[in-house]
Nucleic acid binder design. Structure first.
Lengths: 201, 201, 201, 201
DNA sequence: CATGAATGAGAATTCATTCAT
DNA sequence: TATGAATGAATTCTCATTCAT
């Protein structure tokens, strides 16, 4: 029970601290005290404060990624269905992990050059992996023609993201499961719309 | 001869520093060095770092307020015209003072309780003074009826603000004077629309 | 009314401040703010903080000295009577000027070498002038013999001082005029006693 | 090898400094320089300057307490003997630790509210523990009656303290061991006196 | 006399990071 | 792994004193 996983204790305490306050405001002292570990251990596991911060960010997206693609319905090869599924699962995951979501938001507000650089790289890599997996082995025969696939994927992705973003603003305070239903129905509406225009009759 | 206006030098250096980095990142040392004044002088004029920050924020809005209402066309008593004029002038002012605008944006991202409190108070007071002045002695006879004036003002204000906000996102990188023309024409469009519905024929 | 005597304002504010807190705790800023004068003026009248402090101390004893010897009954040439009168008047004066008394006590607790040196010199000079004046032209014929005058004066002085000291501790909280009556009667008791032993029958 | 006991070095240097000058006069810089440790170490062990000061005061009384009650003759259950023994040991301890004694005196002259509060609490707790231990399991059968025990203990305590206090004033400069003999004999005198009146024949 | 802007050394405190154990 | 003592540069803020006007 005691010497279980002190690294995890540090990570948990760090998420908590960095979710509540900005990078600079949080001192490593706070973290180790809250985690109930020694000062040295933090620097044993993480080279320095910045590395800790970046690692946390990376782990955050890893976690969400896992949430999205665990038991992801691979059987369905419909690109639009998959995209929507991905967004819904991602949103669901972020609702579940509130501290981590708050942390991610803070990381995205950070303006320190080194952190911006690292953050951008991680975020883009995460996005790429996401879309690669979503659009992997999709059924291209469903489309009217396969000349504008790239544009179509972009438009659909952007639209879905915009809807999610607006929904977030307006339904943040509602009961999670209800709110998620609303999001689903809103996305579904456009799903039908897109299929009408881009899929074969 | 020597003592030109060192307070101003401090203020300028502080705006510059606080526009580029967050409150915590900026050290008073940087500011006094850039301003080329002694350490003590900053604290002679401003009780402490926080007071400096808040004062800067207050002065920022004061400046913009002055820009808006200097030679403001008071002769025109049309509420919608005035509101649009105010927004255009405010936007113009913020385009002109880029450092100050960047600073304001950073202040609005700050999450430190004391600063949030002070910021909110200053911002609201600025908003109130603005709208009081815009809607002062307007010609109510232009309206179809004066029963829903409050609602009308709110809807129009919100719409104009939303348009400005979206425009900001999309035209930030364009040549300022061109961008402003676009904003004007977009607002004008809705201006006509609102007059059609809310004013007497 | 306005430009009356700013030096006095400084002095008053300084006494107030130095009576409430120790030398180091009191900042010249506090003093000038309370006195409502400029920073420079303090240093115009007093070379530096320490000089101010010492001057205040000197002025304090001057004031008490004046209180003691204004209308002092010079006609009475009895040494013991005069000594008692002096002590009663001094005590009375210190009761009247509470702030100054509190200030003096603080000066006496101060351990800074420079201040100790200056204080000691002033205090001793004040004591000397006091006793010189008290024992000036006294009637030596009243004594049994004039061989041990020095010892006698010392013993009487010490005794009276000790009584006053003890009385101070025990009657500090009583109504001043009542307390003073008690002191007088206690001193009187020893006055009679000393006369019995040291004066001719 | 290096890290012998730097905390102790800090404590020693701090006692030295705070014994020679008042709280405000002493800078943490002086202390760490004299102790030959880094600036940060002081604040590693003591939250801030005030905490250091208060801790030092507490440790001072702890030390004296230990001096008093190490090998304290518990076999003797005579209250008066014990009280006298306690006072002699306390005085002896304070003579031995001159720096600490000087420090304690300075703490007692300090007028800063926070320090006064902390000091009072520590001092009273120390006094209580002292008297509790001195009067623990005393032989009440020695007294003529046990109706006025409380008053008797108080009177005896006060008297002994007064004698010690006066002795301190008058014998401060003598050779310690000689001076202590004088104190002992003075206390012994009153010890006999009290026993005559309060103990059974 | 009177002002208050200007100085700069020095104060307490913070904190990421290192390292011997 | 795990500890926590140790570092020291950096930070905010204070304050007596000077000086041009």
């Amino acid at each position: 029970m005691k010497g279980k996983d002190l690294k995890n204790d540090i990570v948990r305490a760090a998420y908590k601290a960095f979710a509540k306050a900005d990078y600079k405001q949080v001192s490593t002292n706070q973290i180790v005290q809250d985690a109930n570990v020694s000062k040295g251990l933090l620097f044993h596991y993480f080279k320095n404060k910045q590395t800790l911060y970046i690692s946390l960010y990376e782990m955050a997206w890893s976690l969400i990624h896992r949430d999205i693609f665990t038991d992801f319905p691979q059987a369905n090869h419909d690109a639009f269905d998959r995209l929507m599924e991905m967004i819904v699962r991602k949103t669901d995951s972020m609702i579940k992990h509130q501290t981590i979501t708050a942390f991610i938001k803070r990381v995205h507000m950070n303006t320190m050059p080194d952190i911006v650089k690292a953050r951008t790289q991680i975020y883009q890599s995460f996005q790429q992996r996401n879309y690669k997996r979503v659009f992997d082995q999709i059924d291209k025969s469903l489309f009217k023609d396969d000349q504008h696939l790239d544009e179509i994927f972009k438009v659909v992705t952007w639209t879905f993201n915009k809807i999610t973003h607006d929904w977030e603003r307006n339904h943040a305070k509602k009961e999670p499961s209800d709110a998620l239903k609303i999001l689903k129905s809103e996305l579904e509406h456009y799903l039908v719309f897109f299929k009408t225009y881009f899929y074969k009759a």
